[in-house]
Design a protein around this nucleic acid. Structure first.
Lengths: 227, 227
DNA sequence: GTCTATACTTGGATAGAC
DNA sequence: GTCTATCCAAGTATAGAC
């Protein structure tokens, strides 16, 4: 063993690559947000998980808040890639819900959404953090809006629902489900909800192109042949 | 002015009633959770708002966490009374959404749901707090479930939707909307969503007793005259 | 680039005067 | 019951050695 008291930091002159340290800090920040929340994600706690010194947080990121934002960017980036690949080509509501269930389980297992939820709640304490988080949320809302537009297009609901509003609702619901599920560790309510959503999607999907919805005109955007 | 340094605390032997102090502390805790979030709701911050000494938090409540739970109980109690009165007698989906919009505006103005949302997020740091918060959420979910059951009863959706699941979704959505709206201070997305919900409710409500929903059998629970 | 050491601040919690 | 004073732990951030 090395000197007593130090857990796993570097001793002497054995330098490691700075990019590796940055990445480990970001990963540690994500893990800390997931496991001990915003209030517990201190520089010391994060550095301990990254197995480096606490001062490196400030050297590499300037402040804890900036590191947390970097952590949010990283999860957002990774999840955006995953989501994009998963929903590519999906245009039916039913297919979308099926994909959504899979993604949701991933998110829950890995705690991806927890990072976002914790930062949203933590943003109450600092307005600067709030602005940064709001920007990232807007990115997700727009992403969801595009999907909603695709699925809505040609459905009898098109004249009834704004894609932007649907996206807002989906993001809010997803966030809420995450919070509740993470709270008591029981994911069965969420699973049940998704199962029901699947049934409803199948039902609603069967209405598309079929009989009209209670006398509501399917005018305008309900045509096909778009790019 | 009195002695320098003290903002508004009591000097000498002028005692105030202990119940008043307790109430002021609870009110101050609620305000702190709303305005500076869980991370900012310290004993000192709360005592400052209650215009009393920081030590009284521990004298009256034992710990900060216990005071925060007491604060959650208080908002829950007040809001439960308000909600109960508001939805009394409402049985249609459309009427419910109308009432919901009014309640939602109240909640947003006064930040009632923020208290809950902050504590949910803050619960990540302490398991004991998490259990207490989970209990209160379950109360709200059950309350919502009863309303869902009433509205669902006799509607063509009764065989499709479990009241418990609907309640879970509603609570999650409400929570998510609160978080997002509180984040950037723009309540227009939420207002738009409620407006759309009102239109959808009117549409869906017109289906009740009317034509069936796309060939789905309205069997079992869709009968009236239950206990 | 990484670590040690340290200055400074804030927060939870308790003891004791009044 | 309330306040003062205080201890101790933990956090942010910086300076400087290596």
């Amino acid at each position: 063993m090395a000197k007593a008291g130090s857990t796993s930091q570097l001793q002497g002159s054995e330098r490691r690559d700075p990019e590796g340290t940055r990445r480990r800090l970001v990963a540690a920040a994500i893990a800390a947000l997931r496991e001990v929340g915003f209030a517990g994600a201190s520089a010391r706690e994060i550095a301990r998980r990254a197995e480096c010194n606490q001062a490196l947080v400030f050297y590499h990121f300037g402040s804890v808040a900036d590191l947390l934002v970097a952590a949010l960017d990283e999860t957002s980036r990774v999840r955006m890639e995953r989501y994009s690949a998963a929903v590519a080509g999906v245009t039916t509501l039913e297919g979308l819900v099926t994909v959504g269930i899979g993604i949701f389980r991933e998110d829950l297992d890995a705690g991806h959404v927890t990072v976002l939820a914790e930062l949203i709640a933590g943003a109450s304490t600092s307005p600067e953090l709030g602005a940064a988080v709001a920007e990232r949320i807007e990115t997700w809302r727009r992403f969801t809006e595009e999907i909603a537009r695709r699925v809505l297009d040609g459905s009898p609901f098109a004249p009834l629902l704004e894609p932007g509003e649907v996206a807002f609702a989906v993001v809010a619901l997803y966030l809420g489900i995450e919070l509740l599920t993470h709270l008591d560790g029981d994911r069965r309510p969420a699973e049940g909800l998704f199962a029901t959503a699947g049934r409803m999607a199948a039902l609603l999907g069967s209405l598309s192109g079929g009989p009209d919805l209670g006398g509501v005109p399917t005018s305008g955007r309900a045509e096909e042949g778009s790019p």
